[in-house]
């Protein structure tokens, strides 16, 4: 815990140097939900105000919670990690008595804390402007909070495992782009998972991506029933266990490969 406090403080100080970047990030976090929200509202309106179980205020609620959840769970370490490997910055970190993953976690957490006020403001703005209606019960919150944390852990672990591709090639960008494209379709960013057409929906509930974003967002807006929500959270736990095992295996193999080319 002491280590984390120190890492967080250092990260915070470092981040203070990048205020403009932060402003841009918050600005862009507006754009995507607004586009999809506007599009789905238009589609819903043309179909008598409703698609599946979603009417316009429900869409608004989903994209509001999705904006918050995306902010909380997102990870971008694959980009940083490739840079660290390429620039030789990883080697000194490997020689400290602390796993490099902790620096990444600290960066991640600080960035989120730092931008959270602005993102909450964005969410409130969206909720008011688009007349969001939340069907959230107290138990939705009780399950939703662990669900968001699980989603964050899942997102981070997958991203960090993906980042270790940098141990084998310096072209991580191609891998992350592919990964992000697939994730974009199946994570619930375009539409709530329950609205995806038949086979796509099945795939979406099997793949891990929905458990990072769409699932916690839908629970928080009060979408699923209690039984459904418990099943979804259980799905998150299963994927997290898989992700952690995967990460351990890839990390060890990666370090060997890194060693083979000269670290």
């Amino acid at each position: 815990m002491r280590i984390y406090r120190a890492l967080l403080v250092a990260q915070f100080q470092s981040m203070m140097q990048y205020r403009l970047q932060m402003f841009l990030y918050v600005f862009f976090s507006f754009i995507r939900p607004i586009i999809f929200l506007a599009a789905w509202s238009a589609v819903a309106a043309s179909q008598g105000g409703r698609i599946g179980s979603f009417d316009e205020p429900a869409f608004a609620a989903y994209f509001v919670t999705l904006t918050l959840v995306t902010h909380i769970t997102m990870a971008w370490n694959s980009f940083e990690f490739e840079y660290q490997v390429r620039q030789g910055q990883l080697s000194p970190l490997l020689l400290r008595p602390l796993h490099p993953i902790h620096y990444a976690i600290a960066t991640n957490v600080v960035w989120k804390l730092f931008t959270s006020v602005a993102v909450v403001a964005v969410a409130i703005f969206l909720a008011v402007t688009f007349h969001a209606r939340f069907d959230t019960q107290p138990w939705h919150i009780a399950l939703g909070i662990p669900s968001v944390l699980l989603g964050g852990a899942l997102y981070f672990t997958f991203d960090y495992a993906l980042a270790t591709v940098a141990f084998w090639t310096t072209r991580v960008h191609a891998a992350t782009t592919l990964y992000n494209r697939i994730a974009f379709i199946f994570a619930g960013q375009i539409a709530p998972l329950s609205l995806l057409p038949g086979p796509l929906q099945t795939i979406a509930y099997i793949l891990p991506f929905g458990y990072m974003l769409g699932v916690p967002a839908d629970i928080l807006r009060g979408g699923p029933s209690f039984e459904q929500a418990v099943m979804l959270v259980a799905g998150q736990v299963v994927w997290l266990v898989i992700a952690l095992v995967l990460f351990r295996v890839v990390w060890r193999a990666g370090l060997r490969a890194y060693s083979a080319v000269g670290a």
Binding site: I3, R5, A6, A10, L98
Partner: peptide, 15 residues
């Protein structure tokens, strides 16, 4: 981006 003394503090805690 931060002064060395702040980096040293992090190292102190890590070690």
């Amino acid at each position: 981006d931060i002064p060395a003394q702040d980096s040293f503090r992090v190292i102190q805690v890590i070690y």
